[in-house]
Amino acid sequence: MAIDVKEKNNLITIQLNGSFDVSQYEKFKSICEGYKSPEYKFEIDFKNTVYMDSSALGMLLLLREQTKGDKEKVQLINVSGTVLRILEMAHFNQLFNVETVD
């Protein structure tokens, strides 16, 4: 799986492609560590993500911790299918703003 990153006006968009799982841990962590300043906001784009595992949930929690739990700092966008069900089962829709795809 590839992770693509775009930065525009302190908004960091991280696009996940394929499966978001333990094999992306190091790359995802290093991306997040590169944007530790409080002015950064994150969009995690799940448009091309078909699956995520429990380690992916942990990665999202690490990003949430980095942003001090501010729901306005981390948006999960283009969420659908299996990924949406996993996030809902883990109650991540209460921890993050989740934008679904119709």
Rank of each mutant, 00 (worst) to 15 (best):
I44W: 10
I44Q: 10
I44K: 12
I44Y: 10
I44M: 11
D45E: 13
F46W: 12
F46T: 06
F46V: 06
K47Q: 15
K47L: 14
K47S: 15
K47D: 13
N48C: 09
N48R: 13
N48T: 09
T49S: 15
T49D: 12
T49N: 13
T49C: 15
V50E: 15
V50I: 15
V50C: 12
V50L: 13
Y51P: 04
Y51N: 13
M52H: 08
M52P: 04
M52C: 14
D53A: 10
D53W: 11
S54L: 12
S54E: 11
S54G: 12
S55Y: 12
S55T: 15
A56K: 09
A56W: 11
A56H: 11
L57Q: 09
G58P: 05
G58K: 11
G58I: 09
G58N: 14
G58V: 08
M59Q: 13
M59D: 06
M59L: 15
M59G: 05
M59V: 05
M59Y: 09
M59R: 06
M59T: 05
L61E: 07
L61V: 14
L61M: 15
L61R: 03
L61I: 14
L61T: 12
L61Y: 14
L62T: 07
L62P: 02
L62K: 10
L63M: 10
L63S: 02
R64W: 09
E65G: 01
E65D: 13
E65T: 03
E65S: 05
Q66D: 11
Q66H: 08
T67W: 00
T67V: 15
T67C: 14
K68W: 01
K68T: 02
K68Q: 01
K68V: 00
G69M: 00
G69I: 01
G69N: 01
D70K: 01
D70M: 02
D70P: 01
K71Q: 10
K71F: 03
K71W: 03
K71G: 02
E72A: 12
E72Y: 05
K73R: 15
K73S: 07
K73M: 10
K73Y: 05
K73P: 00
V74W: 01
V74D: 00
V74T: 03
V74F: 02
V74S: 01
Q75C: 03
Q75M: 08
L76M: 07
L76S: 04
L76R: 04
L76W: 07
L76N: 03
I77Q: 04
I77S: 06
I77P: 00
N78W: 05
N78Y: 05
N78F: 02
V79L: 04
V79T: 08
V79A: 05
V79D: 04
V79Y: 03
S80N: 10
S80K: 14
S80D: 09
G81L: 03
G81N: 04
G81T: 05
G81M: 06
G81F: 05
G81E: 06
G81S: 04
T82K: 14
T82R: 14
T82M: 08
T82F: 14
T82W: 07
V83I: 08
V83P: 01
V83K: 03
V83A: 06
V83T: 09
L84M: 08
L84Y: 13
L84W: 09
L84I: 03
L84E: 14
R85G: 02
R85H: 11
R85A: 09
I86G: 02
I86N: 03
I86F: 12
I86M: 13
I86K: 06
